[in-house]
Design a protein around this nucleic acid. Structure first.
Lengths: 349, 349
DNA sequence: CAAGGTAATGTAACCGGTTGCATAAAAAGT
DNA sequence: ACTTTTTATGCAACCGGTTACATTACCTTG
């Protein structure tokens, strides 16, 4: 059907072994022979059949990113896809390809993504911590199958993983508010069952402690996910006797809803109420005023995960690696009080 | 190393051919033998080696989505990724896998994505029209390599392609404004070098013509891409003697910038100026007022492309298919004048 | 009961590369 | 000039499935 190594060998008057060696730039080949073979390849329009190559080497040079995205909207998808881009960017120049495996669509056909492992379709796996389970980890470790987890796992897993430094994120956002003379800072997160939310809360508490502020349980809320949750929560805060003067939200949309509520109630921002959010999502930059957020470099997260995985593939080791990535704060209008609005030291209560 | 078909054959006391037949559910196998073989597989923990299978069949059951995304921001990535999701959703239940090939990262290693074709790494390709060129098409057609283009190509290409109905998008958005009693409707697009922008303009002109309105060249602008472009353009419009009373923007961010400008100049929206945009992007829903947009179902676009490609892979044909997808308008606050605000027929000029 | 047909299984070639080992030719050492 | 080493190439097995063809056993049917 198409041109094979045999055709090239015949045309060049050498053995298939020699052609193969030319393909792989073996230095055992004399320049003249190499030249001859290369000419034959060019004339015949030869391309090595990658499937055969994979078969001989027993690897595919493909790694899979497993995701568990339900029907994506423009809202919920940027996260994985930036990670995806980072992975791609790292592995492609190294001759690897990226396969996407959505656990939700894959599951329809039975075994889910573990099929990829057992059938040797891919050389390694990057998967979110949400898909981790003991059973699977054991299987993969029994096979010495390389994999990297995105997101810090709960205690009891000794695996390769990468995550952003969520504690640091909680800490710098809170510290920033403290430095802008906010006093009663609330903290609103998603579910505290998720380790990353626990870490963010830890950071918040650490920042308070470092500045001699004691946490108020009434100011710590969990379970906010939507614009509407944010609106409701902020309304509730503002109806209180002793409301917070600033809020850290771990979700951008929640912060957006809260901002609307604060504006609807006529609060001046950031003078009367400060807001810091997480994940530098488009709306954060476009809202009025633009929202201060912790910027999480997900492209870099992908790069780190990919780098760790390729290392594991190329020289497997028994010691596992972990990597925590720094985050940075993007200061915008919802938190930075103008200098003149800060009380001078002697004016403070 | 791992369990192969030979091990299973030996354990079950049959030949490898028999095991292979059991694997493929051949009906030539007696139930007792099948049972025996399946037991052996279970006991040994056998999984077929997919690389070997691919080698025998000379296919990979992988299709590639080629993209040409530069460093993605949360702004620019939703488009491809919704298409990606659609493809995935369609192909996974059918036993195919999705590979992502970013032309930009791939190119670092030389030949770019055409490598995928010649090395037989994938069974088919879905690629954006922006990456199309005659040279490539000829090569792929010479090899009978299945591929589908996303986006209508310029004249002169007879290939499989899918696209959203851009003309319809231009038409329904304009018609909607006309039906809301807007009279001087401007049209602002990206570059008219892009066919999809030409089609959108066609739709706009068609809608005007159908309602007996004649186009005014001063109201047709091209080359707007950013929030800032939108702001500048809207400012310019509002400074005119005879400004438009509504604008169709083919880009959401441009519309967002324009909206800010209109608000900054104190115009009431939609009473004094109407705005319709394209692509139902997050900011469209969250802005004040929320922006009316044409909703483009990119997930469905992916599904259609994937469906066309698998069909081509499974039974290659020489006749090419094209598919144009409908769009729908999401009516929001920037265009819908309240009934009472519309002039009654006898009040019109 | 022999001939013909069918169902179940085995044998071995094949898919297209890679690579250990053998070998031949050239270069170096004594 | 003769052995030893180095360099270049070929032979053939191998990776793990699939499948055309051969073979055997059993089942019909005249």
């Amino acid at each position: 059907m198409s041109v094979t190594i045999k055709d090239v060998a015949k045309a060049a008057g050498v053995s298939t072994a020699t052609v193969s060696r030319v393909l792989n730039n073996s230095k055992l080949i004399s320049p003249q022979t190499a030249e001859k073979v290369r000419n034959a390849m060019r004339e015949l329009g030869y391309f090595p059949n990658n499937i055969a190559r994979s078969f001989a080497y027993q690897n595919t040079c493909i790694i899979a990113l497993v995701v568990d995205i339900e029907e994506p909207t423009a809202f919920n998808n940027p996260y994985f896809y930036q990670i995806q881009y980072g992975i791609e960017k790292y592995i492609c120049p190294k001759g690897y390809y990226l396969m996407i495996a959505n656990e939700n669509t894959l599951n329809h056909s039975g075994t889910g993504f573990s099929q990829l492992v057992f059938e040797k379709r891919v050389d390694g796996l990057i998967l979110p911590v949400s898909l981790l389970n003991k059973h699977l980890v054991k299987k993969m470790e029994d096979q010495n199958f390389p994999f990297v987890i995105i997101g810090e796992p709960e205690n009891g897993y000794d695996t390769n993983w990468v995550d952003v430094n969520n504690k640091m994120a909680g800490e710098i956002s809170t510290t920033h508010l403290i430095e802008n003379q906010f006093q009663r800072i609330a903290f609103v997160s998603g579910s505290q069952k998720d380790l990353f939310n626990k870490r963010r809360l830890e950071g918040y508490l650490t920042a308070l402690a470092k500045h001699g502020l004691s946490p108020d349980p009434d100011l710590i809320k969990e379970g906010a996910f939507s614009k509407e949750d944010g609106y409701a929560l902020m309304s509730e805060f503002m109806g209180r006797q002793n409301p917070p003067d600033a809020v850290v939200f771990t979700d951008n949309l929640v912060a957006f809803g809260a901002l609307s509520a604060a504006k609807a109630y006529g609060r001046r921002i950031p003078d009367e109420i400060g807001i810091v959010s997480f994940d530098n999502f488009p709306v954060a930059e476009l809202s009025e005023p633009p929202i201060t957020t912790v910027d999480i470099d997900l492209i870099n997260l992908g790069i780190q995960a990919a780098s760790m995985l390729l290392q594991e593939i190329q020289l497997p080791s028994t010691t596992k690696q972990q990597s925590l990535l720094s985050v940075r704060l993007i200061k915008r209008g919802t938190s930075e009080r103008a200098r003149r609005e800060q009380p001078a030291p002697w004016e403070r209560s």
